Simulated scan of single mutants.
Amino acid sequence: MRDMDDRGELTGIALAGRAGHWDLRHEGGRITALRPSQKGGGGFVTPLLADIHTHLDKTFTAARMPHRAGSLFDAIEMMARDAEGWTEDDLRSRAGRALGKAYHHGTALMRSHVDWNDAQAPLAWQVLCGLAEDWRGRIGLQLASLTPLDRLVEIGSSVAAQIRDSGGILGAFVYRNADLAAKIGTVFDLAERYGLDLDFHVDEGLDPDARGIDAIIGETARRGMAGRVLCGHGCALSIRDSQEVAGILDRASEAGIGLTVLPGANSYLQDAAPGRTPRLRGLAPLREAQEAGVPVMIGSDNVRDGFFPYGDYDLGDMFRLAVLAGHLPPDEWLDSISERPANWMGHSLRLTEGGPASFIRIAAEDAGDAISRSRAARAIWRDGKVLPELQGEQQ
Rank of each mutant, 00 (worst) to 15 (best):
D3S: 15
M4H: 13
D5A: 15
D5M: 11
E9K: 13
R18K: 14
G29T: 02
R30C: 05
A33L: 09
R35F: 03
P36M: 10
Q38E: 13
D57P: 03
T59L: 03
A63V: 14
M65A: 14
H67V: 07
G70T: 10
A83N: 10
E84N: 01
R94Y: 05
A95P: 00
H104G: 01
T107E: 07
V114H: 07
D115Y: 01
Q120L: 11
A121W: 00
P122D: 07
L128K: 05
W135L: 05
R136V: 01
Q142V: 10
A144S: 13
V159H: 08
A161E: 14
Q162T: 01
R164G: 11
D165I: 04
G168V: 09
Y175H: 10
Y194I: 03
G195R: 07
V202Q: 04
D209F: 10
A210G: 07
G212Y: 04
A215Q: 10
R222K: 15
R251E: 12
A252H: 04
I257V: 15
G264D: 10
Y268L: 07
L280D: 12
L286R: 02
R304T: 06
D305Q: 08
L321Y: 09
L321F: 10
E332Q: 14
I337E: 03
H347F: 11
H347N: 12
G354E: 12
A357I: 10
F359R: 00
I360Y: 04
I362F: 03
D369S: 15
S374T: 12
I380R: 00
R382W: 14
D383L: 11
K385G: 07
